[in-house]
């Protein structure tokens, strides 16, 4: 299936959809189709219907898409370390191997090689074309896992790594993918993977709207407010100007204690302290007004 052209895969998909076929091979077809275009909501929706029909292990489904992110996150750490110390290249290569092994057991990443090979060809030509490919709103979940994976193995300079990293992070999660996870978590009534999943994305891209939206939904639905202020503090320590983190602070306070006089006093002190560090920080001022 892997090397069938896009048109064939989608022709098959349309046929399967027309016949309402809900089989293993139809499921596999949706995997391939999503690999080619993760923004296709029809395929996601139909995939859910098949998963339900075949009574598939939904936890496996959730994890399938988490592995990529996890590799991506660990690679980022190593990539930055690598910039400081080029001798760490070997370690990255080992990690690359690990990713490769992981990829073999992971059908999504495996299919990602289709994109990766495409991507490699683009990369050989020029950086600009690379942007065109990776920045077109979509090559979403595989962006982190697969692109970073290949960047380590193939890309020669660290500069380029950084560039790829930049272009791939903003694409980490799409609204359709977020919705897919949400429905699965609803069916499972099990949010245990979701906080770490969103943290993995936010560690790459701390203002990712879809990741925050998913996180808020999980926290609100399963009442997981407990450690959230701590997490927000940590993000504000990383970047005091991160407005998404300020917004999350408001979200937590508003949904737990509410803005009682005591809490207002505490929040005023907190915010004024932050304003002392950076007086022109609009995020803090907006929070103060709110």
């Amino acid at each position: 299936m892997l090397f069938f052209p896009v048109k064939d895969i989608y022709d098959y998909f349309r046929a399967v959809l027309k016949l309402c076929e809900k089989s293993e091979r139809a499921l596999k077809l949706t995997t391939d189709a999503l690999e080619l275009n993760p923004a296709n909501y029809t395929v996601w929706q139909y995939r859910r219907e098949i998963l339900k029909h075949l009574n598939k292990d939904l936890i496996q489904e959730l994890q399938k898409y988490s592995v990529d992110f996890d590799i991506g996150r660990r690679m980022k750490v190593d990539l930055w370390a690598g910039e400081q110390d080029k001798s760490k290249v070997r370690r990255e290569r080992n990690l690359g191997k690990e990713a490769e092994e992981c990829a073999c057991s992971n059908v999504v990443t495996l299919c990602g090689t289709y994109h990766a090979s495409l991507f490699l060809r683009q990369l050989d030509c020029h950086g600009n074309i690379l942007c065109d490919l990776t920045n077109s709103y979509s090559h979403l979940e595989q962006a982190l896992g697969v692109l970073l994976f290949f960047s380590v193995l193939v890309v020669k300079s660290w500069d380029e790594c950084e560039k790829i990293h930049k272009y791939s992070t903003s694409l980490a999660i799409s609204s359709v993918h977020r919705h897919h996870r949400r429905v699965l978590v609803e069916w499972l009534q099990d949010p245990s993977y979701e906080l770490s999943f969103t943290e993995a994305i936010l560690s790459q891209d701390p203002k990712n709207y879809h990741a925050w939206q998913h996180r808020q939904w999980v926290i609100r639905t399963f009442k997981l407010f407990q450690n959230e202020l701590q997490y927000v503090d940590q993000l504000l320590d990383d970047d005091i100007r991160n407005n998404s983190a300020w917004n999350q602070r408001y979200f937590v306070v508003n949904n737990t204690t509410g803005f009682t006089p005591d809490v207002i006093e505490r929040e005023l002190a907190f915010t004024l302290d932050k304003i002392k560090t950076v007086a022109s920080n609009e995020s803090a001022w907006n929070y103060l007004r709110g």
Binding site: Y209, W212, Q213, Q216, R220, N243, S244, N247, Y250, F251, N254, N255, N286, Y287, R289, G290
Partner: peptide, 16 residues
Amino acid sequence: QTYEGGFSGSPGMEAH
């Protein structure tokens, strides 16, 4: 509508 004054995608999210 959020505490910042703008609107978010769904209640609770950041103004965008």
